[in-house]
Write a protein that binds this DNA or RNA. Structure first.
Lengths: 147, 147
DNA sequence: CTTGACTCTAGACCATAGTCTAGGGTTTAG
DNA sequence: CTAAACCCTAGACTATGGTCTAGAGTCAAG
């Protein structure tokens, strides 16, 4: 569906076709996300067209918030016929992380939004509600110390 | 309101009272968030009680998403009588950044949520909608290449 | 045959916000 | 007086995801 399945691509070509940098391809190989490539007589890496798909898998997974380590796990599950439940569990965990981040950002947003509205923006910093909130925080609780 | 204003605190005390690590205090000093401390004869840093407030200012600002560099700017504005409009501009910029992150995370969340619901979680990875979406993405667009 | 474009390696470097180490000196309680 | 607890410095190290460098070898076009 893509290219003759035995085409041999150089690293520059595969990187360009997948939309990543050459260094990124080598970096992913070191991280185990790509198998070690076949080599030409001169030691040049040779890639099959499928490598482009694999690189795009990684790009899409990154766009969903997965770390490279998590992506490695997902690729393993794909390569070695893991279970759907394992994939689903990773997804559920990521969803929970994202929900936690959303909650945190929403809290920040709401505080900042209020402060921003309260500040006239006129005159010097004395009495600025934003600075005051940071400085005295009768109103801004100190963040928890993570223990 | 806090302690006798000429009390001299050691770094360990000021760190503990502010709820940060000793190394963090020295690190903030290097970064210019704290002025260089007075020193005792033996070279020990000596802090006034106000340093606790300054460290807590930093903690609160961090909790609102400001970077140390931004916090440095805010502290400068506070120290040197900057304008409210400068403070307000920094806040507006941060608000915009947070909104952008929220939008990005919401997009991820919605895609992941749909994929998670579509996946039965039963059987092996063949046909797993999550893996399929990452692998073939008729449905998941590749992220933009940032140019 | 030469030039330019491409590739190879190991290892350094970027940002962020600390955290930890080694190898010393100081202070304080008993 | 001694030992514990504290403090000092410079510099290395953590995690994340690359990105860049130097110095060398290879490939394709003219």
């Amino acid at each position: 569906m893509n290219a003759p399945e035995d085409t041999s691509l150089t690293i520059g070509r595969v990187a360009k076709l997948a939309g990543v940098g050459i260094d990124t391809v080598r970096f992913y190989e070191r991280r185990g996300l790509l198998p070690e490539a076949r080599r030409s007589a001169a030691g040049y890496r040779q890639y099959a067209a499928g490598t482009i798909d694999r690189l795009q898998f990684i790009r899409r997974a990154k766009a969903l918030g997965f770390s490279l380590e998590e992506i490695g796990t997902l690729l393993d599950l794909q390569d070695n016929g893991g279970s759907k439940s394992a994939v689903k569990a990773i997804t559920a965990r990521k969803l929970a992380q994202i929900d936690a981040k959303l909650a945190d950002l929403s809290r920040m947003r709401s505080v900042l939004h209020n402060l921003h509205q309260d500040c006239s923006g006129a005159g010097n910093v004395c009495g600025c509600p934003i600075i005051d909130a940071l400085a005295h925080a009768d109103d801004l609780p100190l963040p928890e110390l993570d223990t």
